[in-house]
Amino acid sequence: MTDTWTVADRTFTSRLIVGTGKYKDFEQSAAAVEASGAEIVTVAVRRVNISDPKQPMLVDFIDPKKVTYLPNTAGCFTAVEAIRTLRLAREAGGWDLVKLEVLGEAKTLYPDMRETLLATEVLANEGFKPMVYCVDDPIAAKQLEEAGAVAIMPLGAPIGSGLGIQNLVTIRLIVEGAKVPVLVDAGVGTASDAAVAMELGCDGVLMNTAIAEAKDPIMMARAMKLAVESGRLAYLSGRMAKRRYADPSSPLAGLI
């Protein structure tokens, strides 16, 4: 059975999107992407170091022709900054599929939803396909979708916290209400967290720190690949109902 998902008319097999930040070096970053099986990676847009222009670049290690680059707006705290960043990203790479995040404060890195909604509208009108990092609010998710978000990406816990999915009920409400893909973006700490997100019916999971800060990032990347796959299979297979008490697995008849 082929199980694919589609965002803005692009179809993918892997449901794991990985970030490329926080790694020891580009080699480790590339090896983790490879082990994760991810077909989409997030990247940031930053100034070139004009004092040292011959520094190695990410594109030398992760080929944008083989892996889809998803430019982000990390570090942007206003719609204006985020839009400016993504216009540059589109010019640099020619991509319209982008990850929008407009942050509200440094301490929690919670999204500023007023600015996020505004930026989503502007970007959609300019032909961008924004996948949008957002709060776990089903109403906000609807509003983003109406504004032109091609994917809804609620946080499961604060960015980089590794706390696991703290909001099962609201994530599930968003999944049930959305007509576009829903991906948990942020909060995953270990493989079981990724499986939980997928068992809720999410279309995918986006993570960076859980892999990059593992003692062995390459092994964790593989663990995440397997967890996303098994969580997805468990969701599709339809889990058993929960009971309050035991139900024996061996027949009661024929006991000696």
Partner: peptide, 10 residues
């Protein structure tokens, strides 16, 4: 001028 490129990010 601002001259930018892609770097690792999450």
């Amino acid at each position: 001028y601002e001259i930018v490129h892609f770097v690792g990010g999450g």
